[in-house]
Computed example of a mutant assay.
Amino acid sequence: MADTEAIGRLEDLMTLAPELQAPTYRHMDRLYATRTIKRGAQVHPLPAGRAVDVRYRAGDAEFGIDAFMARNLTAGLLVLKNGRVVLERYAMGNDAATRWMSFSVAKSIASTLVGAALHDGLIASLDDAVVAYVPALRSSAYDGVTLRQVLQMSSGVAWNEDYLDPASDRRRMLRAQLDQDAGAVLAFMATLPRVAPAGTRFNYSTGETYLVGRILAGALREPIGDYLSRKIWAPFGMEADAYWQLDAPGGQEFAGSGVNATLRDFGRFGLFILGGGMAGGQRVLPEGWLRDATRADPAQRLAPGTLEGYEPMGYGYQWWTFPRGAQALPELDGGLFAALGIFGQQLYIHPKEQLVVAIHSAWPQPVHGPSLVETHALLGALAGALRA
């Protein structure tokens, strides 16, 4: 779409008028400084598979794909089975070339880069102290917190993620971003108090993923976006350049949000993960990384169904996990996990079904329960139809 589209303001990002959501999400580079994530010379093919058209149930009614997209303000829906496109739809002015805002889907990309840095020896251990990579946090509540605890959002540091409360920490961080000062967000994070021993309490925090970016910045010998390009985006064969929001002009990638890419390239990222972290014939992630990053063992502290307010999901290394066995969602047993962003940005990966589903949306609220429930119903219908 043309760059002349009317868009909203960064300070209003959580409360945009509905007519401004889609134009803003596809033109975020007009609101903040960015760094390009460069594609490579080759493109990973997405051949057509046998098309699927399913119906799913929501409440007492049954709906098809067109109704799903209309009811849930879906701008793009891509379904890959065994690496082949079986369903691809666009709406709200989007097409296959549209680069769309990820919101917190970026968190899972950032955590994956921690795995890559661990494999490259740039990070020694997830049990390293955060302050070893971010010395500015010495004497803050993050002194004594490990990388693993930050990846699991279990630092014990206070945080209020409420997107609609102007006094919440998430909104205060957004105001710090508006300063376009490279040190403003980190200075804010250093003021937060401790409320629980490290490693004992889950507390979803975009600020915590901003620190994942700071950890990466302290470990890498290059900008985070360049590292993503060199390790994954180019060698795996993404079709288009993407870009990542910076905390200030020339600054650090805002790791908790701000990756803008095409729907097909988000799908390709899902295929990279589904394939165990290989790109260009080279191993990018350590052996066992994805098992640990998406672990859904019922006996673990962050197991699905144990996180109050987030049921039935659990949490891994910045990936949402789903129940297995008798407690699983219908049709979705077998290790489903997801990268999820507010306003309906979603990337689901189901290893057992060899299924990747990427969704771009403009939900009316940051977290919209009815749309999430309908999405899970659609996933179950897709898995069942494709299995048949």
Rank of each mutant, 00 (worst) to 15 (best):
G183F: 05
V131Q: 08
S154F: 06
A136H: 02
A176I: 00
Q180H: 00
I123E: 10
G115I: 10
M101C: 08
M153H: 10
A96D: 12
W100N: 12
R99F: 07
R170V: 12
A167G: 06
E161R: 09
A158M: 04
R172Q: 13
A96G: 09
D95R: 01
S139M: 03
D143F: 07
L87I: 04
A129H: 07
Y133D: 13
M173H: 09
S154T: 15
V157I: 13
V130W: 08
R148C: 03
A91N: 14
Y142A: 07
A96F: 01
L186W: 02
A116V: 15
A96L: 02
M153S: 02
Y142I: 11
M92D: 05
V157F: 11
G121C: 09
A96W: 04
G115H: 12
D120K: 02
S155K: 09
A96C: 01
A190F: 05
I123W: 12
Y163L: 06
L118V: 09
R89K: 14
D181K: 03
T191I: 02
V150D: 01
S102I: 05
G93A: 07
F188D: 05
M173N: 02
A182F: 06
A136K: 07
R172I: 11
G156E: 10
L122Y: 02
G183A: 15
L151N: 02
V185I: 15
A110D: 06
G93L: 09
V185D: 13
R175T: 12
S154V: 11
D179E: 15
D143I: 13
T112F: 06
R138A: 12
M153I: 07
S140W: 12
G115D: 03
T191V: 04
A91V: 08
G183S: 15
Y90W: 05
D181H: 09
L178Q: 12
D120V: 00
Q177N: 12
R89C: 10
G144V: 03
F188M: 13
A129W: 05
L137C: 10
A190D: 08
A132P: 02
P166D: 14
S168Q: 11
L113Q: 06
R175H: 14
A116S: 13
G121N: 09
D128S: 13
A97C: 01
